[in-house]
Design a protein around this nucleic acid. Structure first.
Length: 643
RNA sequence: GCCGACGUAGCUCAAUCGGCAGAGCAUCGACCUUGUAAGUCGAGGGUUGCCGGUUCAAUUCCGGCCGUCGGCUCCA
C-alpha cells in the first residue's frame, strides 16, 4: 500500500512532479466533463495521494433533483481525456495579480440556479481574503487560489477554457506539457491514468452545504506503474479485516443484531482474552488498579460530566423508566470520576490510575460504520490517571512509553502521533468554554512531548471536548486513516465533578485527569491487527496455536494423546480427525493460518515425536514431543514474533 | 445522516429478452488408509434481504424499507 501519510509529510508540493502530473490530470478531467456536461460548474480539483479528484456541480435534472454521474459516464469521460492527452495540447501559464484575476472573472454571468448566489459569494470571499476557496463562475473557469499574491492563469488554447489555480501545473513554462515528461519507451501518456469512482462530497467539506459530485482518479508515470498500483489495491483487499475476519472465523455482523454491533466468534474471543491478558500484565507493572462500572447511568451523570451538552450527538437516546432517564455510556470516564470521588484522597494517593476494559456504546452515523474499525459497541482499553499538576508530565510520558512498548511488541512502525488541539470557533459548542485552560494544557502537552523527544504533528480542531490529546494515527489496509490509541488531558471533568485531594500544605486541590487507551478498543485494535499481520498472528495471539494432523485414522489415538499433552500445557490445540487426506488437512490448517501443524503418522507414534510443519511452510521431522511442547510454550510465553 | 452502487445456498459467484434458480468450495454419508496446500462417489441445503406494485408469469421491471460497499461528514 502507498504510505498514506500525506498531510503529515510536509513534502514540497511545488517541486513534486507527480503532484503536478496529478493536478494536471484533474484539470484535463474537468475539461472533459465540461465538454460532456456544458452546464457543469467546477469546484475544487486537487492532487491527492495516488491521484486526484475533482468536484462538480452538475445542476438539476427535470424533476429539480441534483444531477449525478452514473458510473458508466466515467468511461466516456476517460475516453475524452485520452484523446485530449494524446493530442498533446499545450498548457500555457502566466502569472496574474489578484486584481487581474478578479477582473478576469468579473462581469461573467452569475450562476443561474438557486443556491448559485451562495457559490458566488464564496468566490468573492476567496479572492478578497485570499483563502483557499476554489470555485468557479458558471461553466468555464475555476479559481484554485490559495493566496492572492501568486495566482496563475492557464489558457487551454484548444478549447479556450480558462482556469485559475495556484502555481502552474507544468514543471516550468519551458516544458509546457506535463504528460510529455511521463513517457517511457513503449508507454503512452494517455494510458497511465484511470478514473476510479464517483462519490458525493459536501461543498467545502461542510455537511450543511450542498453536495457536489466528485470523481476520483489515479495517475502514474506510465501504464506499468498504474497496473502495479491497481495490483497493490487488489492485494490490500485480501488483507482487509472484513474479509479475513470472515475467513478466519473471528467475527460476524448480523442484520438482526444491528449495524456496528459485532458478534465475536470463539476465535475472536481468544484474541480479546489475549489482549486483555497483555494489558493486565503491563498495567499491573505500571501501577494501575482495576475497577468496574455499569453500562448505563442516569441522565444526571452525563449532564454533570458534560457529555450531554457536548457529546449527545454520538450517544444512544435515553430510555425512560419510572420517570428517570438513563443513557448507555459512550465513555467510562464519568464512572471513574465517581469512583475517585467515592473516598477522600491525599496527595500520597496520587497518581491514582483506574483501569477498566469498559464497554461503551456510541451512535455512529450509519454511513460511518466500517467493519470492526468503526462500530457502535466497543470495549476500550481505558484508564483514567488522576494526578497533581507537577506529576502531569511524567504520567503523560509514561503513557506514551506504554504506546511505544506495545508498538514494539506488535512491530507497528507506520504511525503518526497527532497532537490534537482545540479551535477557537468550537468553544462552547464542541469544546468546554475555557480558553485559558485549553491554552495551558495544550502547552503542557507540547512541552512534555518536546522534552521527551517524541516527534508529533499538531492539528487544530481535533481535541476531545474536555481537553487536548495525543492520537496515534494509523491506516487500514485500504488506506483509510484511523486513530488507534489515544492519550488525553482532561482539565474539565475533575472540576465539574468537584474532585479533590489534600495537598502537602493541607489544602484542597483539583487533580488533572489523563484519559488513555494505548490498546485502543478491542474492535479497532483487532481489526487493525488482523490487517497488520494479514491474519498471520504470532503464536501467542493465534486463536488456534497447534493443529494436530493424523495421517490416517490409525493415528487418531496418538493425535488425541498429543493434544491432551499440549492442552495441559495451556496450548490452544485442535485435532483434525476428519476423513480427508493429510494434504487436505494441511491445506485447511494453512487457510486458517494456524502457526504450528503437528503431523503424526506411524513413525511419530512409534518414536513419540511429531513432524512439525510451521505456517511458513518450513518443516522439522522427528521432533520429540517434549521439545515441541517446549518450543510452543517458549514462543507463547515470550510473545515471540517468530514462529 | 448525505451522494452513488450493490444484496441469489454457510462462502465465492452463474442464470440470454420477464418463462420450472445453477456451479465450485464448505457441510453430511459411503468408499479409500493416505507422508507436508484440495482422493473418489453420493446426499442435503433457497420464500433470490424485507414489504408492496405492474404482469398470465418477477431473481429479472417500478416504489418503499433494511443491510453492505465506495466516498463525504464524523471518530476509539
Amino acid at each position: 500500500m502507498e504510505a498514506t501519510m500525506a498531510g503529515y509529510n510536509g513534502h514540497n508540493e511545488d517541486n513534486d512532479f507527480m503532484h503536478r502530473l496529478r493536478h494536471s490530470t484533474a484539470h484535463v478531467m474537468a475539461e472533459a466533463v465540461l465538454q460532456l456536461y456544458p452546464q457543469a460548474k467546477l469546484a475544487i480539483g486537487p492532487a491527492i495521494d495516488a491521484g486526484f479528484y475533482y468536484d462538480f456541480d452538475l445542476g438539476k435534472d427535470e424533476q429539480g433533483r441534483p444531477k449525478t454521474f452514473a458510473p458508466e459516464d466515467l468511461a466516456e469521460i476517460e475516453k475524452r481525456m485520452r484523446q485530449s492527452i494524446a493530442a498533446k495540447k499545450p498548457f500555457n501559464c502566466r502569472e496574474v495579480s489578484a486584481d487581474e484575476a478578479r477582473q478576469l472573472f468579473q462581469g461573467q454571468p452569475s450562476l443561474a440556479e438557486e443556491g448559485a448566489e451562495h457559490h458566488r459569494v464564496l468566490v468573492r470571499q476567496a479572492l478578497a481574503h485570499g483563502l483557499h476557496a476554489p470555485v468557479v463562475r458558471p461553466g468555464r473557469a475555476v479559481v484554485d487560489a490559495e493566496d492572492n499574491r501568486r495566482v496563475s492563469h492557464i489558457n487551454r488554447q484548444q478549447h479556450g477554457s480558462t482556469y485559475l489555480l495556484r502555481g502552474c501545473m507544468v514543471s516550468s513554462p519551458s516544458s509546457p506539457n506535463p504528460f510529455s515528461l511521463q513517457r517511457e519507451k513503449g508507454s503512452k501518456a494517455q494510458d497511465a491514468f484511470k478514473l476510479m469512482n464517483v462519490a458525493g462530497a459536501y461543498w467545502r467539506g461542510d455537511e450543511h452545504n450542498p453536495m457536489l459530485q466528485r470523481i476520483y482518479g489515479t495517475v502514474w508515470q506510465n501504464k506499468k506503474q498504474l497496473e502495479a498500483y491497481l495490483a497493490r489495491l487488489e492485494e490490500a483487499k485480501k488483507r482487509d479485516h472484513r474479509k479475513l475476519g470472515k475467513d478466519l472465523e473471528i467475527f460476524v455482523f448480523d442484520e438482526e443484531v444491528g449495524p456496528g454491533l459485532p458478534l465475536w466468534l470463539p476465535r475472536g474471543g481468544v484474541l480479546i482474552e489475549e489482549l486483555e491478558r497483555l494489558a493486565k500484565e503491563v498495567e499491573d507493572r505500571a501501577g494501575y488498579v482495576r475497577v468496574r462500572s455499569p453500562h448505563l447511568a442516569k441522565e444526571d451523570l452525563f449532564l454533570h460530566s458534560g457529555h450531554l451538552p457536548y457529546y449527545a450527538e454520538s450517544m444512544y437516546p435515553a430510555m425512560e423508566l419510572e420517570g428517570v432517564r438513563y443513557y448507555v455510556k459512550p465513555m467510562n470516564c464519568p464512572f471513574h470520576h465517581k469512583i475517585f470521588a467515592a473516598r477522600p484522597h491525599s496527595y500520597r494517593d496520587l497518581p491514582l490510575r483506574l483501569a477498566e476494559y469498559g464497554t461503551c456504546y456510541r451512535y455512529e452515523k450509519s454511513g460511518e460504520l466500517f467493519g470492526l474499525m468503526r462500530v457502535r459497541s466497543m470495549q476500550m482499553n481505558d484508564a483514567h490517571i488522576y494526578c497533581a499538576e507537577d506529576q502531569f508530565e511524567q504520567e503523560f510520558m509514561a503513557v506514551i512509553d506504554l504506546y511505544l512498548h506495545y508498538f514494539k511488541l506488535f512491530d507497528i512502525e507506520k504511525y503518526v502521533m497527532r497532537f490534537s488541539t482545540h479551535h477557537k470557533r468550537g468553544l462552547g459548542k464542541k469544546y468546554i468554554d475555557n480558553e485559558r485552560l485549553w491554552l495551558k494544557t495544550e502547552d503542557m502537552v507540547r512541552r512534555a512531548m518536546t522534552n521527551g523527544g517524541i516527534p508529533f504533528v499538531e492539528q487544530a480542531d481535533e481535541a476531545a471536548f474536555y481537553g487536548p490529546k495525543i492520537d496515534v494515527q494509523v491506516w487500514s489496509a485500504i488506506g483509510r486513516e484511523f486513530t488507534l490509541a489515544t492519550n488525553q488531558v482532561d482539565f474539565a471533568q475533575p472540576a465539574r465533578f468537584d474532585l479533590r485531594f489534600t495537598n502537602r500544605e493541607g489544602q484542597e486541590e483539583t487533580p488533572l485527569c489523563i484519559h488513555r487507551a494505548p490498546l485502543s478498543t478491542h474492535e479497532r485494535m483487532i481489526g487493525f491487527l488482523i490487517e497488520h499481520y494479514a491474519g498471520n498472528f504470532p503464536a501467542w495471539l493465534a486463536p488456534e496455536q497447534v493443529r494436530v494432523i493424523p495421517i490416517t485414522d490409525a493415528h487418531n489415538e496418538y493425535a488425541y494423546r498429543l493434544a491432551e499433552r499440549l492442552s495441559a500445557a495451556h496450548v490452544r490445540v485442535e485435532v483434525d480427525a476428519g476423513q480427508e487426506r493429510m494434504n487436505a488437512k494441511i491445506r485447511s490448517a494453512q487457510l486458517l493460518k494456524v502457526p504450528y501443524m503437528a503431523v503424526v503418522g506411524e513413525q511419530e507414534a512409534q518414536n513419540n515425536t511429531v513432524s512439525l510443519r510451521k505456517r511458513d511452510g518450513s518443516r522439522q521431522d522427528g521432533m520429540a514431543v517434549d521439545a515441541f511442547v517446549a518450543l510452543v510454550q517458549e514462543r507463547v510465553a515470550t510473545r515471540a514474533k517468530e514462529l
